[in-house]
């Protein structure tokens, strides 16, 4: 069920306990924002490993560094210290152009504000990442419509975002994240702008994707959203304070204690 990583394993993180290449392998990562004499360590020595097929929620209050962590994981920002391997590829030293390519090929983003272009129809929004991947127009349309079918919006391909409900817009955004077949789906507060019905709808969609073997990292501050994940990582003051499997999680997960960076077991707070 799990798709094999698209690139050959190389430079995998230290202490790799399994044969498979982890999707995310952060080792001693720090992010330092320097403004004049003052420097803030937004991330301070984060080590985190997420394997293929995992469904992980990263939780933390605002200012905890979870957004910075999300930017680092999403290759939207460069790290100051440490090493980051994404699906076996060392991305710590890449420049802007290469990072853009990594984001394009490896990561599917789902944002809180959906970030759909209002002037484009649903399928045109979904096709965007494939334009930068250099696919032909025919292939882009076919794949976009297939992705929309997978999120249950095959009857809305020619609708513009303004003609869709919030839940449907987020489904379009999920289809856009899926379309390039990325190693990782990174969702930043995906339910923050949705009502409870649409939230349930979106979380159901993530459950489905998880069942299909997708690797999902979900950033949230809502516990009931985080509880849908199989593993919860809590962040505070730039450090991981807890990393635990959800109580209801089945036996298919690697034991939490085997993970580097799991400083404390058990639910925090």
């Amino acid at each position: 069920m799990h798709a094999a990583p698209t690139s050959a394993p190389r430079g995998v993180g230290v202490g790799d306990p399994t044969d498979s290449v982890p999707v995310i392998d952060l080792h001693g990562v720090a992010k330092i924002y320097a403004t004049g004499a003052l420097s803030v360590r937004a991330l301070d020595g984060v080590t985190l490993r997420i394997d293929e097929g995992e469904y992980v929620a990263i939780m933390g209050p605002s200012g905890s560094g979870k957004s910075t962590l999300m930017h680092i994981i999403g290759c939207l920002d460069v790290l100051s210290e440490g090493a980051y391997h994404l699906a076996g590829e060392d991305v710590s030293e890449l420049d802007e152009v290469d990072l853009a390519q990594i984001r394009n090929r490896r990561i599917g983003f789902v944002f809180q504000q959906f970030h759909l272009l209002p002037s484009l129809t649903a399928w045109k929004n979904v096709e965007l990442p494939m334009i930068y991947a250099g696919l032909s127009k025919g292939a882009r349309r076919a794949k976009a419509i297939e992705a929309l079918r997978r999120v249950g919006l095959d009857d809305r391909v020619d609708h513009k975002p303004g003609e869709l409900s919030g839940g449907q817009q987020q489904r379009v955004a999920v289809a856009r994240a899926l379309v390039g077949d990325p190693a990782l789906i990174l969702a930043d507060e995906p339910t923050g702008n949705l009502d409870s019905t649409a939230t349930e709808d979106a979380l159901g969609l993530f459950d489905e994707l998880h069942d299909q073997g997708r690797t999902i990292v979900l950033i949230t501050h809502e516990l009931e959203v985080a509880e849908r994940a199989r593993r919860i990582v809590r962040v505070r003051d730039g450090r991981i304070t807890s990393d635990s499997a959800h109580p209801d999680v089945g036996r298919d997960l690697v034991p939490v204690g085997a993970r580097p960076g799991a400083h404390q077991a058990g639910a925090g707070t």
Binding site: L76, A100, Q101, H115, L128, Y132, R176
Partner: peptide, 11 residues
């Protein structure tokens, strides 16, 4: 920002 996040290089 969105286009860049989705993998558009600066060029």
């Amino acid at each position: 920002g969105l286009r860049k996040a989705l993998g558009a290089p600066p060029g």
